[in-house]
Design a protein around this nucleic acid. Structure first.
Length: 614
DNA sequence: TCGCAGACTTGGAACAATGTTG
DNA sequence: CAACATTGTTCCAAGTCTGCGA
């Protein structure tokens, strides 16, 4: 235990620094107001310039959508660039040859692709009929420190066993090493620094060799055979030992994550398949043949005691089918959502406390895209909440605020300790109910004391099979995207090319708008003429130069957020909406999804017609 | 109905590769 | 062509939700 606490305090030290910075960055009110202001401006600008109506009040949802739009618009720019680079370098034949090769490769890939979406589904619960794989790839063994690298305690060289993080400290070490301040990791640190430096300075050949070696591992362990099709595995490597780095104020940060041995590992595969061989001298914990689950390998992790799995890549049948299903449920919600909304608005009047709390929670989940909020074990994880686990201190009620009535101010840490701060005007009935819920409660008490996620989800699934809280996030994001795209195409289809560029520029400018005087940006709004686009481009360039000088950390972070939101387009936006739009607009799908994304959404790209309706 | 383990999705951070620019 | 910026990939923590047993 002491070894653990030793590491704990060590890491806690370095973490604390970062945390403090984080606090400064995200936590303080000023920075926060700034970012929210920025967001609002961005939305307004879009509204104004692009004639887009903001239909959903869920800010988060909007940003997923706006990100999609902006990233979709780089069409022309890329094409130009390609043309230029081709001309300058290679000969005509070479270009032609390379092109042919590319096309051929693409065709081949297309041919090899498993079109599982055209096949019949298995009976309920069965995930596969045949599964064969090579087992997990274990991380390399611990390398002892070289003889010339030392660890010092209180100025003396100490040989320690715990450096390899396989074992805890020995008894003697525990009694010797008590004070972190007396530890000197200097030489070890220098060694690691030298190693990274050496890696950076490797020659081309060395890098190539390394790459090939890695590829070999992928070729051997990275694939499995599932129902006669070769499928890529998502994470075929066992997690290496190390220090647990939780997020936020995690009570277990810095604890020792143990090395996983074959004896800890459960293998799942077909009975009649070639069972993977454990490393020499070892055996598996268990080999099972359970075709109702999708994992190939599992083990129990020692920090939280939860299970870890090796599963297939996002482009596999198992993941794709599930994804498709998810969007189908969300689509079904489309036809029921009016009823469901009507119902929870009615429930707001209910005399029954449970019903009333449920209605308010649902209102939040639908309107604000809050997560369900399962209860968590105290002391095991950071203190974060979702809708159902909101506590008294997380909301403030304002009868009147900034010219709005009935405003709820949210301030809490959500998933991954990301702060959610929002002031939302709500309808009177919700406001009144909230006041009622807060009566006779102290900070620390639950806002929805009669409600939890399982009550909520049970209710939802009684309204519609398959309906759970998270479906609202998918539904709202997807429906908003579709609406936005529709309006875009209806009113401005003939100007689309210009608009596409416009939006890319707009996006760029959006980032500048807060830093630069407004004269630099809004030169005029009279038309969407191509000439204007050109002028704008020049303007953007000038602005960019200035931005570099004026660069504030705040903008950096804002950009990071935008990028992070981009990843959510992988999870919440029905790809068929985007695919249909591309087909309608004759925009190549490559402009919207990169290779990985295209593979993941192969089912959608293949099956979607231009007239697809979410 | 309640608690809990298990399975699977979501999403940020770190790292790697690739593109851009002065 | 080196330094910097952007984009893509990997890793794994942190959620959601289900089903089971008491």
């Amino acid at each position: 235990m002491q070894a653990i606490s030793f590491f704990h305090s060590h890491v806690a030290c370095s973490l604390k620094k970062k945390k403090q910075r984080r606090l400064v960055e995200e936590g303080d009110g000023v920075a926060q107001t700034k970012t929210s202001k920025k967001r609002t401006q961005k939305v307004n600008f879009c509204l104004h310039r692009g004639n887009l109506a903001l239909t959903s009040s869920a800010r988060e949802t909007w940003f997923m959508v706006s990100f999609f739009l902006s990233s979709a618009q780089m069409v022309k720019k890329e094409e130009e660039e390609q043309a230029v680079s081709k001309k300058s370098k290679k000969t005509k034949e070479e270009i032609e040859e390379a092109r042919q090769l590319k096309i051929k490769k693409k065709e081949e890939e297309e041919q090899n692709r498993w079109r599982w979406w055209e096949e019949e589904k298995y009976e309920d619960g069965v995930k596969w009929k045949f599964l064969e794989h090579k087992g997990p790839y274990f991380p390399p063994e611990y390398q002892p420190l070289p003889d010339n690298v030392h660890f010092y305690y209180n100025g003396h060289i100490v040989w320690v066993s715990f450096m390899e993080s396989v074992t805890e400290m020995t008894h003697e070490e525990r009694s010797l090493i008590q004070d972190l301040d007396k530890c000197d990791f200097g030489e070890i640190h220098a060694m690691h620094k030298a190693k990274t430096e050496a890696r950076k300075n490797m020659s081309k050949e060395e890098k190539q060799a390394l790459k090939e070696a890695n590829q070999k591992i992928v070729d051997e362990y990275g694939y499995c055979l599932l129902d006669h099709h070769k499928e890529r595995i998502g994470n075929f490597k066992i997690e290496p030992p190390g220090l647990f780095r939780g997020r936020g104020e995690h009570p277990k940060q810095g604890m020792l994550k143990k090395r996983i041995q074959p004896e800890d590992v459960i293998i799942n595969c077909s009975k009649e398949s070639r069972i993977p061989a454990p490393p020499a001298g070892h055996h598996w914990k268990e080999v099972r043949h359970d075709n109702t689950v999708t994992w190939l390998v599992s083990w129990t992790e020692n920090i939280q005691g939860s299970n870890k799995y090796i599963m297939l890549n996002a482009n596999s049948k198992l993941k794709g089918e599930k994804d498709w299903e998810k969007y189908e449920v969300a689509r079904k919600l489309k036809s029921r959502v009016d009823d469901i909304r009507y119902q929870y608005l009615q429930d707001l009047k209910s005399k029954q406390m449970v019903t009333r709390q449920r209605a308010v929670a649902l209102y939040f989940i639908d309107k604000l895209a809050l997560r369900a909020g399962n209860e968590k074990e105290e002391g095991e994880t950071a203190d974060t909440v979702g809708c159902c686990s909101l506590r008294v201190e997380h909301i403030t009620l304002h009868e009147q605020l900034d010219g709005n009535e009935c405003v709820v101010e949210f301030d809490f840490l959500g998933k991954d300790c990301i702060r959610y701060y929002n002031k939302v005007p709500v309808i009177k009935k919700v406001f009144k109910s909230l006041k009622l819920f807060l009566e006779n409660k102290q900070p620390g008490d639950e806002l929805f004391d009669r409600l939890n996620t399982s009550v909520l989800n049970k209710h939802l699934s009684s309204l519609m099979p398959g309906l759970t809280a998270k479906v609202f996030r998918t539904y709202n994001a997807s429906i908003t995207l579709q609406q936005q795209l529709k309006e875009l195409t209806n009113s401005q289809s003939h100007l689309l090319a210009a608009l596409a560029n416009m939006q890319a520029d707009m996006w760029l400018q959006m980032k500048l708008i807060h830093v630069l005087p407004s004269t630099h940006i809004c030169t005029s709004d009279d038309s969407f003429s191509v000439r204007l686009v050109e002028r704008k481009k020049a303007a953007v360039k000038r602005c960019e130069e200035q931005l570099l000088k004026l660069e504030v950390q705040a903008t950096d972070r804002e950009e990071n957020k935008q990028i992070a939101l981009g990843t959510s387009k992988l999870n919440y936006l029905d790809p068929r909406i985007s695919v249909a739009w591309c087909k309608n607009m004759e925009v190549p799908i490559e402009k919207i999804y990169n290779k990985t994304q295209r593979e993941k959404f192969a089912w959608a790209i293949d099956m979607t017609e231009a007239d697809f309706e979410f």
